[in-house]
Simulated scan of single mutants.
Amino acid sequence: MLASVAPTAACIDLKPVAHSVDNTVAVLEDSLTRLGQESEDWRSVLTDTAAKLTEDTQTTVRTEVTQLLQRGAQAAGVQARCGIDFLAARMGDGLRRILDRVLGRDQTPRQPKLCDASPALIELALPADRRTSVQYSGWDLDTDPVIEAQLTGPAGSTPVPASALARVSAYLLVLNTGQNGIGPMLGSGAAKVELRWQGMTLSEVPIVQPPPPECPPPKLERLLTQTTELAPSNELSPNSDEDFFGNGPTMDLHITVRTVESRRVEADVRVTARETHPDGRPEGDGTAFDGEVKKVLLYEAPPNHEILDPLTAEMKVPYYYAEPDYRPYTKPVGGAAPVRTITYHGDTFGPGLNRTKVVLEWNTDVKVRIQQTSRCHRTTRS
């Protein structure tokens, strides 16, 4: 009785398998060459490729090519939006992955490719119902990890909620830009929407912020400060008896009003006093005081506004004051001067430095013309 002997590896003829692999590689490489030359006929190229893979050992490869062909046929909209060359290139990527598997090489992982975003930009000036979504067309948009979206602007990047980016198919993504999507986030100064995958930027859609509203017409505002008190402070004469008793001081009031940086109206004011005889001669003991310059803020424009017409004035008002009962004297200035009245307090019995002073009542009827200049659009200078 003869015992049966199992065949060993040495008994198997591997030549048909090797031939099948070589034939498969040749068919795939030929198809890749044809795709580069005949991108418009990618369907015919893949159909011919599947038809040439007839051997039993090529069944798996033939199935993969057929599935790739079906995937391309399902992406008719992609061809319309992206062009034939884009779709043919994706067929080539698929064939290369099949070829890498046949040859035992590391397969290039599927990477999403985007070719079109519609609309190409998000215009926030449009009504909300006309900018509800952005549709992205491409290939392999169903890869893992998933594609992510973010808003990018001067302040940095903000992730978009995953629920706002819908993966409709392997060829179509839809970003919800409506009020129940990222609509409320778009007016925060964002400059663009980015789609990113594995650290790579796939798409950038600009966000066009709406133009600012038209600036309101200019308006008039009154000076804010009502009164300012001044007093001479620095004694100039070493022989002074420190009062103006019996004679009285001649007071010189210096006022300079200017507009600063189209934002503020400021005044520099100073008063000097010297003892003077009623006939105008300087008094012998020469009591004299010189005041320091005092800065007064008369007006400051609100934020985002500027002063249109600069307000300037230069005044020097000399006045001799002698009053036996020491009562203050108020002198009207009148007209459009920035000061309405000047009240003098002087000619008191020692020490005059503590009692001599001038009180300015600013003319709040003087108006400043201002206009909003930022966060609005001004066509002409009013």
Rank of each mutant, 00 (worst) to 15 (best):
H377K: 14
T63C: 00
I122P: 03
A231S: 13
P161M: 03
D365N: 12
R131Q: 14
V61K: 03
D85I: 07
D106K: 12
E194G: 00
I370S: 07
T108C: 04
L195Y: 03
T312W: 06
G280C: 04
E261S: 15
Q135P: 00
D93C: 05
C82V: 09
Q111D: 13
A170H: 08
G187V: 09
R81C: 02
N180Q: 15
T343G: 01
A301N: 07
T59M: 06
E40K: 12
D144Q: 07
W197V: 07
G352M: 03
P206A: 10
E314A: 12
S4P: 08
E64S: 15
P332W: 08
Q58H: 12
P278D: 11
Y329K: 15
T132R: 13
D116P: 01
E266K: 07
P278C: 06
K316L: 08
V78T: 15
A155P: 02
P127Q: 10
A73C: 05
Q226H: 07
I147K: 04
G138K: 05
S237M: 08
P249R: 02
L114F: 07
T373Q: 07
L124I: 01
A288H: 05
G248F: 02
D309F: 08
E314D: 14
V269P: 04
D241M: 03
L121V: 05
G138I: 04
V45S: 08
T227L: 06
R131F: 10
T47I: 14
E275L: 00
S4I: 00
M315I: 15
G156H: 09
F289V: 00
E275T: 01
S44P: 03
L69N: 11
S203W: 02
G284L: 06
R110T: 10
C11D: 14
A73E: 15
A273K: 02
G138R: 04
D13E: 13
Q37G: 04
E123V: 00
N176Y: 10
T356A: 04
L46W: 09
G92L: 10
P119A: 00
A88Q: 06
A273M: 05
K113W: 11
P210T: 14
P154W: 05
L141H: 05
P216V: 10
P211G: 12
R81F: 06
D241Q: 09
